[in-house]
Design a protein around this nucleic acid. Structure first.
Lengths: 341, 341
DNA sequence: GAGTCGTTGTCAATCGATTGCCAGATGCCG
DNA sequence: CGGCATCTGGCAATCGATTGACAACGACTC
């Protein structure tokens, strides 16, 4: 050891304190307030001074301290995103869209998981709130008034869930379901089933209601098959119930359930789509992987995530936005749908 | 409208400012410092006073303002997680594990995506740093010295990437690759290929090197087939190159590539596993969906995420941890592997 | 030359919580 | 009863950035 300030390898050593506007001010010979103005109120200062300050800030690697800024302004520059269950692949694309919109706006996205528990969801949302300027609640399992209470503190945008008085981004189910039903009807299906998802899910009820109405319109018989956990094993466990319903086609609450059911059918030697057509919802990653590939009613998830964040940002900035938006769904036909037996 | 302070429906109304320790202090008739101590230095105050303060805080729904706390303490209570590409399903489980560990410790997890660009990764990491107490960098594409520079400011833990002097969580590739190769050898495979991933990926090199060494050990011939984008279409595009290599088995850099290749093989009528066995890495969601189901070398992703966050928290709290940990991989045999033709 | 105006930079208060230090009250000991 | 330690709670400085008010200055007008 020829130098006794050498870094011990492995340890990360003393951290140098980050430069503040005071350091930049001292270096430039101006006051801290001048630095603040130079950096975010361009034009307020003399052009040359501003440039000098900017260069000094650059030179010492100054980074604004968001916490310090948050105190006087009340804006943290971060947005919270709550999902009901991170492992659900539905959220991949949604998260990606949200992240993209956030980083485009220079905001940081904070991320939390409710693990399908309303209680945990509320607790986590409350924990998140003080650190964020607003919340996107995806597929919230909370009651309307819990959501309203959260929204009374900070802007809240809901996704895949309508809540009275809150801006919401939801898929418009009609177009997708309509074309799926038209196609099924065209293939001779007359008796169909809906394999439903979690009771607490707003989206589950919404899908059932639209599906029900449109099926009746078309003169099809439709039944709801008791709820399954929104997972592949949930779909597998529903196999007997679906078979007992004696339908020729089933629409499942989501692709995970549909995939689980599809796999189970093959395991029991039930020919899909020969004897049973299966349709999912969402078009998640992997829906096209199995044989037969899964037909599904696609939601524009990335766009939903993006739009939700944009709405939230608008609300945070005080531009009151409209109550909500619905993005069209679309039927994606793959091999799991064929003529009725 | 019988009350003129009724909330306009749709708008979220005036936000009530959050209660501060000053509000609680006034309500209880003590000083703000007493409130602060009552809430986080239990025992420092008289027991009865403490309880009174706690109850008042509860009553007004007091929530600590993390930004305000961060200023004097320098701790933000949030951790940053950077991944190379959010849409890669590999990260689902990892993110879940990380989120679980973070919320267990009462920390918030911030989340960012580098979109496979080193430049963007560095910029985002720097943007994230002042808002977080430390960073987990997953599959970083950065140079060693860029990582070192980040780590000189705040603790950094790398995942799926070794960096000198930084604590790292990586899978231990040997056990998984060994048993995969043993199995392939047992099935009569003698000529195998590695379909490699992004050049900038440390993990890509690591997999190749371990695979190479172990294949040579077993007297197998092995070639590296030029790199593919780490996506399904990257795998599909590599089809011709793999076929031209005239091997009986191929291990792909990751499951996405393997899935893309598998699908393309079927499209070209190349029998898998009859004429070609395919093995992926990671065991992501969906690996078991196609026919034939994909064999793969599984990484314990959730555990990796969890451990990474735990390490980071330890480093943030000043408990210097060891340099790194490797978690064993495991070969998962499914239908995409069979006897050599 | 006095008055007015716009430009440019500083001053000082502020956001909410933390914490070292101090002071009053209380209890204990000899 | 004096001396001393202990327990409780308050005071005030501090973290880093923002921002309204203001002062100094030069330019311009009449």
């Amino acid at each position: 050891m020829d130098r006794n300030d050498a870094e011990p390898p492995g340890a990360s050593g003393r951290r140098k304190p980050r430069a503040t506007i005071y350091d930049v001010a001292r270096l430039t010979g101006v006051s801290p307030s001048a630095v603040s103005r130079a950096l975010n109120k361009s034009g307020r200062l003399n052009e040359r001074t501003e440039r000098r300050i900017r260069e000094a800030a650059e030179a010492v690697g100054y980074r604004i301290n968001p916490m310090a800024r948050a105190l006087p302004t009340g804006k943290t520059g971060t947005l919270g995103l709550m999902v009901s269950d991170i492992t659900n692949p539905v959220y991949f694309e949604l998260v990606r869209g949200a992240e993209r919109a956030a980083s485009r706006a220079g905001s940081i996205l904070v991320f939390a998981d409710a693990q399908e528990s309303a209680e945990l969801e509320l607790a986590t949302a409350e924990r998140l709130q003080p650190a964020a300027d607003g919340l996107v609640m995806v597929a919230s399992r909370l009651e309307d008034d819990d959501l309203a209470r959260l929204a009374s503190v900070e802007p809240v945008v809901t996704v895949n869930r309508l809540a009275p008085g809150l801006p919401s981004i939801v898929p418009d189910l009609r177009p997708g379901i309509e074309s799926a039903l038209d196609r099924l009807a065209g293939l001779g299906h007359r008796r169909i089933a809906y394999l439903s998802g979690p009771e607490a899910s707003w989206m589950n009820r919404a899908r059932w209601e639209v599906l029900f109405a449109l099926a009746v319109d078309r003169g099809m018989s439709i039944v709801e098959v008791g709820s399954a956990a929104p997972t592949r094993s949930g779909g597998a466990e529903a196999f007997e119930r679906v078979r007992a319903a004696e339908v020729t086609a089933v629409l499942a609450y989501n692709d995970l359930i549909a995939l689980g059911l599809l796999h189970e059918c093959r395991g029991h030697g039930l020919d899909v789509p020969g004897r049973l057509s299966i349709v999912g919802f969402d078009d998640i990653f992997g829906a096209d992987l199995p044989t037969p590939a899964l037909s599904t009613i696609r939601s524009p998830l990335a766009a939903v995530g993006e739009l939700a964040v944009e709405r939230l940002l608008a609300a945070v900035n005080g531009d009151e936005t409209g109550p909500g938006t619905a993005l069209a769904t679309e039927f994606v036909e793959r091999e799991s749908v064929a003529a009725a037996p």
